[in-house]
């Protein structure tokens, strides 16, 4: 095991974490401001990926695809917010879970109706194809590196948006006291629609970026959705900072677990058994991490609202 390999794996973990952050940011924002659990967030991720793949194959431009993914997922988010989600803010979590579970079914089968049962093609743009050389002779895929950069930019952008803009002030006000911002005469319905569409656009962006190196297919959002929930629960629901820390933590633990656990068991077991047990444990690692965090800090690492 060389240090180059470990550094590469850490980068992989970081990149995976950044991707999760794009998903988790929207989820945690929606929960923080509106108090809503949205299981259909993964469906918006899927909408982004499909929109990007469809537009990219029609126009030949990945970048137009990314724009389309932002537009399509934000539009889908706004549409769903106005027709369904809006009615759920005053309901308990149970109703929210169920209604958004129903939305998953509707989105998945609707997408399949529109695009068919076969996965779509979406590739990395030529500009970002292939590996780059990092200091120390390390080869790393340029595209993954770009995802890390985009994630960092989004995180910074969200920070600016929330701390420096009028919209941000309203979002923060909404997080701490929902009744108050209504009293201030802010159009709360519009604010909620905007926040929801923003979260949806982030999920759609994640879907488009990841779609280029994964499979664009129906149901692609569900595994990511569960991971994103793990992330925001670890980070503290409602906290953007928590989502960032949680995402990187989950990304790194998952990646290193997959890589190190089988090797660890090989120290005192035969090869086949060790890889089998090691990878079984690795697939459980982030859930164990989450349980541990919650046992120590029942409201996550960075609880919102104190």
């Amino acid at each position: 095991m060389t240090s180059a390999l470990i550094i590469e794996q850490l980068l992989n973990g970081l990149q995976f974490g950044v991707m999760l952050f794009l998903m988790a940011a929207g989820l945690t924002l929606v929960f923080g401001v509106m108090g809503l659990i949205n299981l259909a967030h993964g469906s918006l991720y899927m909408v982004g990926a499909f929109a990007c793949a469809a537009v990219a194959s029609y126009t030949g431009s990945f970048w137009l695809g990314v724009v389309a993914s932002l537009a399509a997922s934000a539009a889908a988010g706004a549409l769903v917010e106005v027709t369904v989600i809006r009615r759920l803010y005053n309901r308990d979590h149970l109703d929210q879970v169920l209604a958004t579970f129903a939305l998953i079914l509707i989105f998945s089968e609707g997408t399949r109706y529109l695009f068919g049962s076969f996965p779509l093609f979406l590739n990395v743009p030529d500009m970002l194809a292939g590996p780059i050389s990092l200091p120390g002779g390390l080869q790393y895929p340029l595209y993954r590196f770009a995802i890390i950069v985009v994630g960092a930019l989004v995180a910074f952008g969200l920070y600016l948006l929330i701390s420096r803009t009028r919209l941000g002030i309203r979002i923060r006000a909404g997080e701490s006291d929902r009744a108050m911002i209504a009293a201030l005469g802010i159009d709360i319905r519009l604010l909620y629609t905007i926040v929801f569409a923003l979260g949806a656009a982030l999920a759609g962006l994640a879907g488009a970026l990841v779609g280029a190196i994964q499979s664009v297919q129906v149901g692609m959002g569900e595994p990511v959705l569960i991971l994103a929930f793990v992330v925001i629960v670890i980070g503290g629901i409602g906290s953007i900072k928590g989502a960032l820390v949680g995402a990187v933590l989950v990304g790194v633990v998952d990646t290193l677990g997959r890589f190190l656990l089988p090797q660890f068991f090989q120290l005192f077991m035969d090869n086949a058994q060790a890889t089998s047990i090691g990878s079984a444990l690795a697939s459980m690692s982030i859930y164990i991490l989450m349980a541990l965090v919650l046992v120590v800090k029942p409201k996550g690492l960075f609880p919102a609202n104190g």
């Binding site: 794996q9 992989n12 990841v210 499979s215 990511v224 990646t255 089988p262 697939s283």
Partner: peptide, 15 residues
Amino acid sequence: VYTKLGQTDYAAEIA
């Protein structure tokens, strides 16, 4: 190497 069923990111394995 055995990977998680349904896994979609293979960076660690490719490394």
